[in-house]
Design a binder for these strands. Structure first.
Lengths: 257, 257
DNA sequence: AGAAAGTCAAGAGCGGTGCTCACATTTGTT
DNA sequence: AACAAATGTGAGCACCGCTCTTGACTTTCT
């Protein structure tokens, strides 16, 4: 495949390279539109080629195959979500941990409701024959959980994370996993709070997936905003950022060791 | 479409009707195998016809179209999941509410891990062009949440459900939704606990979806069983069935009004 | 018994898909 | 101007969902 001209090219891009990059951008843009309109499984290279004003086989000069385009769209969506989450979190003061947690969850939900098909590509059932290449997608794909964990870790370091009220013990094989994650992400939170973070993470996406995928059942909830706000409030409490933290009579703060 | 012979047919089925029913059963069975092997989006009527030893157009005598087969498989999967959940819950004494909650969650997870593609059809991203007919799928589709709510309601009526520790207030428009649900399901639990139930419901499926869909990222968790056990323990606590209920020094039980 | 009605499998065909390949054309560089 | 790389073309293969006509068979009614 001669599409990759030179691996290390310090020189300025030739016009041809510029045109090629533009075409690939156009393909991704058109693919994103098709994806948003008709879903991942209905994404068709032929349709993209038609919109591009080119014969179907021509797009294979720029994109290896359908899977490759899916991968590009996957990375694109992960990064857009990550950007919006980061922006929403950064819009609040660094010591407003509960506010930032709310902003994070609300940003994910907002993006998911705005881009349901792309959200489905990221967090829904996997596309049948498709396996995401880990070396290209784990980076963008871990931005949200990374932001969440950094948030909880910051609260912990600031002594603003409450000790879990419920089950705190963590099984030994799980503790090994958590230790690996803690080391990989450079965190300081103890096992119980780290496990709480993982729980909050999956619960958040569970609530959003139910809403985006219509799993609640049509018209059972006329007030989805309030329902999600409730979810977030419960999760903040589970994470240790709840309303009782720092309030008189609330749970005792947990001091970093 | 003359395939439905007579709406009210008190007579014994003719041989023809029996053969027809058998063929439809075979189609559903083959479809279930294809679905489990290759996923919902890759389900092909032509492939089913091949396995049935018949030309592709012949299956349209028995199944309206691809969507119809998907609907049959959807109902089939919902019922299999519902059966297994009911059996797992019923295997424990009626007053072991925490045990039954654990059994419910574990049964869902077990089925999901055994049948990932069918789980994806039920709880994953919706199939692009497909819209499930509510009048045929809501019944089987609500069995699990119904079992969960009945479980929590039973615990509440028995005075074994703890008051929520965190945010208890429920926004007014959400309260209207909850009242409708409570009436529709014949429950007695107050708003705060009902909202907790909904939260637990979505969180449970969030954790399972992450595991089934490989959203955790390949090899981050070597001990998925322990991780899920932790999820369940947290959820039991959130629901009010936690370890502190009924124990000395634990949270006060909430008495039904 | 024979005709009418109902049922069913087969095959051709339409438009769509992913993807490959030989060929023609354009383009940048020497 | 000449060359080679990059790009676009169109035909073609195998697959898909779905429709329609045709012929054969079975059941039912007269």
């Amino acid at each position: 495949m001669p599409q990759n001209p030179k691996p290390p090219s310090p020189k300025p891009p030739t016009p041809r390279q510029r045109a090629r990059a533009r075409t690939i951008e156009d393909i991704v843009r058109l693919g994103r539109e098709h994806l948003a309109l008709h879903g991942a499984a209905a994404l068709s290279l032929r349709a993209v080629a038609r919109d591009l004003g080119v014969v179907s086989s021509a797009v294979y000069r720029y994109v290896e195959n359908r899977e490759e385009l899916l991968t590009l769209l996957l990375i694109d969506a992960y990064n857009e979500l990550g950007d919006e989450v980061d922006a929403a979190v950064a819009a609040l003061p660094g010591d407003d941990f509960a506010g930032r947690f709310n902003a994070l969850g609300s940003a994910v939900r907002r993006w998911a409701l705005r881009e349901p098909a792309r959200y489905g590509l990221l967090f829904g059932s996997p596309v049948p024959g498709y396996r995401a290449p880990a070396e290209r997608t784990t980076g963008p794909g871990t931005r949200v959980i990374y932001a969440l964990m950094a948030l909880l870790d910051g609260a912990y370091r600031a002594g603003r994370l409450a000790a879990p009220g419920g089950p705190a013990a963590v099984a030994t094989p799980l503790a090994a996993d958590l230790e690996r994650i803690r080391a990989g992400m450079g965190l300081a939170v103890p096992d119980s709070l780290l496990a709480r973070g993982a729980h909050v993470w999956t619960s958040l996406f569970g609530a959003i997936s139910f809403e985006v995928f219509g799993q609640y059942g049509g018209d059972t909830f006329a007030a989805p905003d309030e329902l999600f706000a409730h979810h977030l409030a419960v999760l903040a409490d589970v994470a240790g950022l709840g309303p009782s933290v720092g309030r008189p009579g609330g749970r005792a703060d947990l001091q970093p060791e």
